[in-house]
């Protein structure tokens, strides 16, 4: 057997084994997803952990920035979580997954293109507006009245868009972590942080209007 024949044979064998591996992976993912739809947390976690490197590879082909890749992976995982009822086990899993991933990637690229040129630095994450006292952890789950928000602040908070109100309430009044709050609000942790930043900035402006120095 000459070297060309040997190489051709090796390539054919590796293609066959890749196909078999793909089919095996597809079956495994489909089964885990079907189990996740029935509420099996263990299968769901296994699935998400196994999807992660594939998603990272897929996104890294389009985006070079590691932080952005991780952010998009999180967005895809959240979208998958929200859309998990739309998977039907008689259909293949991977086209469903890649459609969600492609959509998240397109959204990210569109938003980035829109932001370019009109980006303005966000205030520091910890720069809460004056008068806004984040409750301590013991106070955190007791509700907004009991943590003693000033009337001005409550009024200002009520004038924010619902999504920003929700972000502030989840993070600072319910005392959830960014991840927990993001899961609750069905957005990526990055998007939740952006909402909170925007809320802080709006609150600051509103409070300055209401309490002239």
């Amino acid at each position: 057997m000459d070297s060309n024949q040997w190489n051709r044979g090796k390539r054919a064998r590796s293609t066959r084994s890749e196909r078999a591996g793909d089919a095996c992976r597809e079956t495994r993912w489909s089964q885990w997803m079907a189990a996740a739809q029935r509420g099996d947390a263990r299968a769901y976690e296994l699935l998400l952990r196994e999807l992660r490197p594939s998603l990272q590879g897929f996104i890294r082909r389009q985006i070079a920035n590691d932080a952005a890749v991780e952010d998009i992976v999180q967005t895809v995982l959240l979208s998958l979580h929200r859309a998990r009822h739309s998977y039907r086990s008689e259909h293949p899993f991977e086209p469903w997954l890649w459609a969600i991933a492609r959509n998240a990637l397109t959204d990210f690229q569109r938003k980035r293109a829109r932001r370019n040129g009109r980006e303005e630095p966000l205030p520091d994450e910890n720069a809460l507006p004056d008068g806004f006292l984040a409750p301590t952890s013991s106070e955190s789950r007791t509700g907004r009245d009991q943590v003693g928000l000033s009337r001005d602040l409550e009024h200002a908070l009520s004038r924010l868009p619902a999504s920003q109100q929700q972000a502030v309430l989840l993070l600072h009044l319910e005392g959830l972590s960014v991840i927990e709050a993001a899961v609750r609000a069905h957005v990526s942790p990055g998007a939740l942080k952006a909402r909170v930043h925007r809320a802080y900035r709006a609150l600051r402006t509103l409070l300055e209007e209401e309490v002239p120095s």
């Binding site: 509420g39 995982l77 009822h85 942790p189």
Partner: peptide
């Protein structure tokens, strides 16, 4: 995030 999502894995009816 993966851990939080797995904890939130309630049964859902497929469409």
């Amino acid at each position: 995030l993966i851990a939080a999502l797995a904890q939130d894995a309630r049964p859902v009816a497929p469409v």
